[in-house]
């Protein structure tokens, strides 16, 4: 791997590599402005054009540090960041509230985050709500018709990836040659905690992508739609996926998108094959008793 190629910590540069030249306006989405420059600095939000169309950008800023919440730096999503990102989504919904479904602006998530704010103050005030708030907002925008594309450029770690990425319609990732990290935990930590030899886990991960760390394993499980092998292909890939997602939504194929769509993709790629079987069985079992639970009148 060419180390200079890594995009880790370079969320702001990635914005410029992806959107139309000079088109990014930070801290303004529709009528909403973010006026406090110190608010949620590890998330950069704003509006740009991409191939001429207006898009909302929500990007991790790996170089920032939140002075009010010292556990939040290097792209960590703290409470301010989570709510700021949620506000960026709601501002996009609001801006296009009167537009027909096919004209809702896309949201591009640039993902390089190692975690959610791990601090005592965060737990006292409920970090879980901030990360949950952003996910619900994204899901709402996705279901309202906004195409949402996540582009993983560096770290997409566990709960922070759930927060910033996994609610997108489609997820793209720079491939492993960029040192891209998608995982819950590195395999070394998994090995220590579940008490299995690292060598054995590495060997097993060749045939089963379910616990190993890396974008290729998420691809195999249907957790990532496409791997991108060059940074200068990110822009075109995102433009493509916006078009595909828009077409799917116009055709009423929302079930092929987002977390649910990736469930089907997981089975298609032979990554998660038990999931649909369990669901089918539950459906059959419920159908057999549903009458008992309907109103009796």
């Amino acid at each position: 791997m060419d180390a200079t190629e890594s995009m880790m910590g370079r969320g702001r540069e990635a914005i410029d590599m992806i959107v139309d030249p000079e088109s990014f306006t930070e801290n303004a989405i529709g009528a909403k402005t973010f006026d406090d420059p110190d608010f949620g600095p590890c998330a950069a939000v704003g509006t740009a054009t991409l191939d001429g169309q207006t898009v909302t950008i929500i990007a991790s800023d790996g170089q920032a540090f939140n002075e009010r919440f010292p556990v939040v730096y290097a792209g960590i999503i703290g409470m301010e960041e989570g709510y700021k990102m949620a506000q960026a989504v709601y501002a996009s919904l609001e801006a296009d509230a009167d537009k027909p479904k096919e004209e809702k602006r896309p949201l591009v998530l640039i993902v390089d985050t190692p975690g959610n704010g791990p601090g005592k103050v965060e737990e006292i005030f409920g970090m879980n709500k901030a990360t949950g708030a952003y996910q619900l907002a994204l899901a709402e925008a996705r279901l309202a018709g906004h195409p949402i594309i996540a582009m993983v450029i560096g770290r997409a770690i566990s709960g922070a990836f759930l927060c910033h990425g996994l609610q997108a319609d489609n997820i793209l990732s720079l491939d492993a040659s960029f040192g891209t990290m998608i995982h819950v935990m590195p395999l070394t930590s998994v090995s220590r905690i579940i008490r299995k030899d690292l060598e054995v886990l590495e060997e097993l991960s060749k045939s089963n992508p379910v616990f190993a760390a890396g974008p290729q394993f998420f691809y195999a499980l249907g957790g990532v739609e496409e791997l991108v092998d060059q940074t200068d292909k990110m822009r075109a890939a995102i433009i493509d996926h916006i078009a595909t997602v828009r077409a799917a939504k116009a055709a009423g194929q929302d079930d092929t998108l987002g977390p649910w769509g990736r469930g089907a993709l997981g089975a298609e790629r032979d990554g998660r094959v038990v999931r649909p079987k369990v669901m089918d069985l539950m459906n059959q079992e419920f159908a057999a008793v549903a009458g008992q639970y309907a109103p009796q009148r």
Partner: peptide
């Protein structure tokens, strides 16, 4: 405690699906 480390990637993806369903239930 959340994701099962023995099958962490599948567990993570399931979490995203649950959040999606919660919004769909709204």
């Amino acid at each position: 405690g959340g994701v099962r480390l023995h099958e962490s990637n599948a567990g993570l993806l399931a979490h995203a699906e649950v959040m999606d369903q919660l919004q769909k239930a709204r």
